[in-house]
Amino acid sequence: MPMIELRKVSKWYGSFRVLTECSTSVAKGEVVVVCGPSGSGKSTLIKAVNGLEPFQEGEIIVNGVSVGDPKTNLPKLRAHIGMVFQNFELFPHMSITDNLTLGQVKVLGRSREQAVEKGLALLDRVGLASQRDKYPGQLSGGQQQRVAIARALSMDPIAMLFDEPTSALDPEMINEVLDVMVELAREGMTMMVVTHEMGFARKVAHRVVFMDQGQIVEDCTKDEFFGSPRSDRAQAFLSKILQH
């Protein structure tokens, strides 16, 4: 059974259809990169996986639990799905340490000492142990995103969702974040990653999902995708993005 499975997911904003019968899956330990032009619905799709974006039709099953089912305890499900956002979304009124411990204490019920210990270990892992007492506003974008990854990891997630984690970053900071993600992938973390970073996809992705206009146009292995994408749209996208 896959860790994450989407079956014919459709979503409308009013009469505007943003997702059209999207189906794909992520197996345990698999890294799936979702790419496509802006406005293609990638972000909406990944946010539907942990129920941040409601959808009207279809089904999403995460670790055996249906996300769209009104009876599902979403907070409980989300507690075990890490998510990293485009704009980091660290809580600006809390210190780095407090950002790392909030979820552990309030959701998982860990003691403060346990949570701090765990959080600081992860902070050390992303190379930012010295920043523990600072506030998010005092860190660079790349540092903030690494803290955000540590925050997600502190919840011991069974899978991680990345929503364009590097697109709000200055170019020189992109690699420090990608390095952390590559390391995670190599450790066997189940990951679904919306990104334009094709270098990252080549390095660690198992599969690539290509979206356009709310539809999944391609869903194939990395080698197939970069070797011979079948659709014109994917070819056009690749040639545009790989030119630089």
Partner: peptide, 15 residues
Amino acid sequence: IPRGQPGAAYALGLN
């Protein structure tokens, strides 16, 4: 408050 903030809180499992 940017909508991503409650989004991030929910993603951590907060109700």
